[in-house]
């Protein structure tokens, strides 16, 4: 069997005495798109945040490319360069232009040459349809545009895995589509992604595998998303999916 790109073993997370994640095991293969769904408070966002060290974990291990994640500064920085993340709130740096937002990390963290990186940034901006906004400041952009820039800012680091944490949850409905289209294209081009979302149609279309999380545990896992969304195996997942129907 192919060696997993990202492996999680018995991940355990507590916060102020409450257990948030209980002994989670997961192997993510290269090129795989995993969608994580579940009721709010089930720990799905926390799970993503543990993977790039934004949250401390109280037990278990995380391996990227067979190397264990350590919490020391040097290791965590190199891990974060390999595991990109996009957040729910558009988190661009407000004092920098679109292009500066994108170039900051590759230039100061990865010490890449500005000129080459800028060419790559422009190519990526072209792909998300925002090349003409390169000199705008975030406040001049719509939510959907900001979120597409945030995706480009993560992509330019050449991450091996991309974590998307409810990236359309704060968007107006008409902007959701333009952002999800970008993510669909990434999936087509073979990006490895872990996606937390409430967009069930999107989840069904993009997922190679679906995880249903509840009370900090993987309550159901399916490698056949079509079947899962038609007819989940567990009663809890059925109930959850039903809550999206009108």
């Amino acid at each position: 069997m192919e060696k997993a790109l990202l492996s999680v073993r018995k991940l355990h997370k507590e916060f102020e005495g409450n257990t948030i994640l209980k002994s989670i095991d997961l192997d993510v293969n290269r090129g795989e798109v995993i969608v994580i769904i579940g009721p709010s408070g089930c720990g799905k966002s926390t799970f993503l945040r543990c993977l790039n060290g934004l949250e401390d974990i109280q037990g278990g291990e995380i391996y990227l490319d067979g190397k264990k994640l350590q919490k020391n500064a040097k290791n965590i920085s190199s891990v974060r360069q390999k595991i990109g993340m996009v957040f729910q709130s558009y988190d661009l740096f407000p004092h920098k232009t679109v292009l500066e937002n994108i170039l900051l990390a590759p230039v100061i963290v990865q010490k890449r040459k500005r000129a080459e990186t800028e060419a790559e940034a422009m190519a990526l901006l072209e792909k998300v349809g925002l090349a003409d906004r390169k000199n705008d400041y975030p406040r001049q952009l719509s939510g959907g545009q900001k979120q597409r820039i945030a995706i480009v800012r993560a992509l330019i680091m050449h991450p091996e895995v991309l974590l998307l944490d409810e990236i359309t949850a704060a968007l107006d409905p008409e902007m959701v589509h333009e952002v999800l289209q970008v993510v669909l294209n990434l999936a087509k081009n073979g990006s490895t992604m872990l996606i937390v979302t409430h967009e069930m149609t999107f989840a069904k279309a993009i997922a190679d595998r679906v995880l249903f999380l509840e009370h900090g545990e993987i309550a159901e896992e399916s490698r056949n998303p079509k079947a899962f969304f038609e007819m989940p195996g567990t009663e809890r997942a059925r109930q959850f999916l039903k809550s999206f129907e009108y």
Binding site: R80, L104, A105, A150, R153, A154
Partner: peptide, 10 residues
């Protein structure tokens, strides 16, 4: 967090 997630140190 978004700055840290890009690999920046403190």
């Amino acid at each position: 967090e978004s700055a840290m997630a890009l690999g920046m140190n403190g």
